[in-house]
């Protein structure tokens, strides 16, 4: 569009472009102000508390405390469990996203609604219900018992925590992958098979690369809450499943705000750097959250 006002043939004067520019220029302004006030500023406070002690004097003690054996063990345990849970979510979620995206549009809609339905139930209560499900006398073990198996001791182990994470966050893996796959051009797949690709080849060379952006947002959306959870490990975990989220929460209830802040800061930086690297190499702008 030209910048000058133009009188069109029938004599109607066009609206002056700078007025349109005004609306477009300032539409994001409230959001920018909001982001600065409530996203950026709070993080500055986290940084401030990380580098000061209870009296407000500058110190590095809170930061260096993280790099002691105690916290490193907990941190790596959190990373390990979160990675396992994310991998399981991906293995379970990827095929289901694929299957759903290949079914009839109407079935697709119903299945996606069904996948989202558990998210409407309270997260704490769902986790609580898993506890009832997996305990030694729970439903799963009574069922297995009928076949003479078990009881398998699950509650209180790392396995139970992983089950909890997979259960709570699986929909977050499926939805973004599905969202990308449902937009996939069917003709590409047909072309690939016409050109001699076998089923696995199509998956490896066509479908997977095209759905990568969905996979990355799925992985992010499962990994981040898993790594920082404290409720799941509290309810389903046992004597050896303290996670970094638990420690942060404990420091908060012990009113040790400086340590709370420093642990938060380090966890955040590690996650943000890690995710930035992944995003950089995937050069996608992330799949949409939703169909």
């Amino acid at each position: 569009m030209t910048k000058k006002n133009v009188i069109s043939e029938n004599g109607i004067r066009r609206n002056p472009p700078q007025k349109k520019g005004l609306l477009q220029r300032y539409a994001a302004a409230p959001h920018i102000v909001w982001s600065v006030l409530f996203i950026i500023a709070p993080l500055i406070f986290v940084a401030y508390y990380s580098f000061t002690d209870a009296d407000g004097v500058f110190t590095l003690a809170n930061i260096s405390a993280f790099f002691t054996e105690k916290y490193l063990i907990i941190f790596f345990r959190s990373v390990k469990l979160a990675l396992i849970a994310t991998a399981i979510c991906l293995l379970l979620g990827y095929p289901i996203a694929y299957f759903i995206s290949r079914s009839k549009p109407k079935t697709q809609k119903v299945l996606i609604l069904l996948l989202m339905l558990p998210m409407w139930m309270n997260f704490l209560i769902r986790t609580y219900a898993i506890m009832v499900l997996v305990q030694d006398t729970g439903i799963i073990n009574s069922f297995l018992g009928k076949f003479g198996i078990g009881p398998i001791h699950i509650l209180g182990t790392e396995g139970a925590v992983i089950i909890g994470m997979v259960y709570d966050y699986l929909p977050f893996m499926i939805l973004p992958i599905y969202s990308v796959m449902s937009k996939l051009d069917n003709r590409l797949i047909e072309a690939a098979s016409d050109l001699g690709c076998n089923g696995f080849g199509v998956l490896r060379k066509v479908i997977f690369p095209l759905s990568l952006s969905g996979v990355i947002s799925g992985v992010t959306m499962v990994l981040v809450p898993s790594i920082s959870t404290f409720y799941i490990s509290q309810k389903l975990g046992g004597v050896d499943t303290l996670l970094i989220g638990d420690v942060i929460e404990q420091q908060y209830t012990a009113s040790n705000y400086n340590m709370t802040a420093s642990l938060s800061l380090i966890l955040m930086l590690i996650l943000l750097v890690g995710l930035a690297i992944v995003n950089h190499y995937s050069d996608g702008d992330g799949g949409g959250m939703m169909p």
């Binding site: 959306m221 942060i248 705000y257």
Partner: peptide, 21 residues
């Protein structure tokens, strides 16, 4: 980037940082 922070950041950190503020 600023928009993405609350999604990339663990909830516990978003909560704590807002509480500080």
């Amino acid at each position: 980037t600023a928009t993405n922070i609350p999604m990339m950041n663990p909830e516990i950190i978003t909560g704590i940082s807002l509480m500080f503020l």
